[in-house]
Design a binder for these strands. Structure first.
Length: 437
RNA sequence: GGCGGGUUGCCCGAGUGGUCAAAGGGAGCAGACUGUAAAUCUGCCGGCUCAGCCUACGAAGGUUCGAACCCUUCACCCGCCA
């Protein structure tokens, strides 16, 4: 990850620029020395997900190019709810949930940006800091006065909602809060560039206007495209529809790695550009590999390696690669020695049972989180496997010979979903164990 | 406040007293083909002690041998009128 001198050109090559204010002026601003820029992150969940990494990594790209990123946690804006991209009113979060989310959000952002006191060290801010004690009258006079309602109504995010049931005054006010953030960050850090997802364009330009009015300062804006994959899903949505989270307790490193390995050929180039720090030469070589030798999936492997390492670290990556090699390597599971197997399988989703043999349907249900009906169905359809061998008898139970090294059972549904069952001689049966951190 | 329309399984949506676990589409799952892709074809797609049973059609009551379908009340949504 060598520093990139011309960030703007790099971002453009990556497909990261959807809109910007005058490109020449922005380029000149960036060329004039370390620039302070910010991107806001509202606490909409208990963890960041893969899609959130696009703007976060973009901040990192600026930092690597010698600029100072400000990661702004939306302690205030998250309390209000952004109407952008929504068709209906958000339900309000309670203060405890919000505070908890802000804490985890901050911790996760800290993992990807270098924070500190130096000129290009990142800064973490929370907009609750300057809104908590703000008085309504002051807010209405100092901020509200600068917002013509007719302009506010024209903003895409508001107009869309007026056509679909309206929105509350609370959400209507969101753009004022976000604009105030820009002004505040300008005052505190001299921040004159805001970046964000393209759905933020309206909110960002509102901030530009306010900044010009109250500080007579000119500033810049740049937005990232909201990328959807070949099937129309937002980036970072698993096929089941759920988000792929950064928190290992919510999405295991193994699941993240597997998700990335399964990325569609048509999308993998985009993902490499947005979600890794690989340089242009490397990425373009991988593009060629995908076009010429798609079955090797070199690009998917590179993507999975890079991002898993960034999110969970190299040690975790090594473990996850080992499981994948063991489970999908095509070799005989029974030929692996116990230590190799134990180490590899420790990373896979696992379930612990007592010593006695049990019906396979029950084990499938418990191990893979299926209902028993689903487990029966999987066997009936020929989609269930024990130790890589198709299960044909829906009433079968395990027998002594099935336990690898007298300890493990590898269950699989279809090509992808795998669960390890380990039996533990001593304590109770049936308790589920989360994959170790 | 008045009048009218609506609320169906993950989503959209048909069904207007028995043959309804509920048409059709989407999403999802499995099999075949492959590359742990995509496309295509086939099957599946509430739960369970699975040839049967249980739970379900906004909620609660009621009518009936029998209700997603009829009646009453309540909740929420959408129109139109004040």
């Amino acid at each position: 990850m060598a520093p990139v001198p011309d960030v703007l050109a790099d971002l453009e090559w990556r497909g990261l620029v959807a809109q910007s204010t005058d490109r020449g002026a922005l380029a000149a601003h960036l060329a004039g020395g370390p620039v302070t820029l910010y991107c806001g992150f509202d606490p909409t969940a208990d963890s960041l997900h893969v899609g959130n990494l696009v703007p976060l990594f973009a901040l990192r790209r600026f930092q690597l190019a010698g600029h100072r990123p400000v990661a702004l946690a939306g302690g205030a804006t998250g309390f209000i709810g952004d109407p952008s991209g929504r068709t209906s009113e958000r339900s309000l979060l309670d203060a405890d949930t919000l505070a908890r989310r802000i804490r985890t959000l901050s911790a996760q952002m800290r993992h990807f940006l270098a924070f500190g006191e130096g000129p290009t060290d990142a800064v973490l801010a929370d907009n609750l800091d300057w809104t908590r004690d703000l008085r309504v009258i002051d807010f209405l006079r100092d901020v509200g006065k600068h917002f013509p309602v007719n302009v506010m109504l024209d903003r895409e995010s508001v107009a869309a909602r007026l056509d679909s049931g309206g929105l509350s005054f609370t959400e209507f006010s969101y753009q004022l809060l976000q604009s105030l953030d820009f002004v505040e960050l300008y005052r505190r850090f001299g921040c004159r560039l805001q970046v964000g997802g393209n759905d933020q364009w309206g909110n960002i330009t509102a901030g530009l206007d306010l900044l010009r009015r109250v500080e007579s300062a000119s500033a810049h804006a740049l937005t990232f495209p909201l990328v959807t994959d070949a099937s129309g899903q937002k980036i970072g949505k698993s096929t089941g529809g759920g988000n792929v989270w950064i928190d290992p307790a919510m999405t295991s490193p193994y699941a993240l790695y597997q998700y990335l390995l399964h990325v569609d050929d048509r999308d993998v180039g985009t993902y490499l550009r947005l979600l890794t720090f690989l340089g242009r030469d490397d990425v373009e070589q991988l593009d060629v590999a995908t076009a010429q030798r798609p079955r090797e999936r070199v690009a998917q492997r590179a993507l999975a390696r890079e991002l898993t390492a960034l999110v969970h670290g190299p040690a975790e990556l090594a473990r996850v690669e080992a499981v994948s090699a063991t489970l999908f390597g095509g070799g005989e599971l029974s030929s692996l020695d116990e230590d190799t197997l134990a180490a590899a399988l420790a990373e896979a989703p696992s379930t612990t049972v007592g010593t006695s043999d049990a019906p396979l349907v029950d084990l499938l249900a418990a191990g893979l989180g299926l209902s028993k009906s689903d487990a029966r169905r999987a066997i009936r359809e020929g989609g269930a496997y024990l130790n890589n061998v198709r299960i044909t008898d829906g009433n079968a139970s395990t027998s002594a010979a099935d336990w690898l090294h007298d300890r493990f059972l590898v269950l699989r549904r279809g090509k992808r979903a795998i669960a390890v069952v380990e039996r533990v001689p001593h304590d109770g049966a049936g308790s589920r164990a989360a994959p170790p951190e």
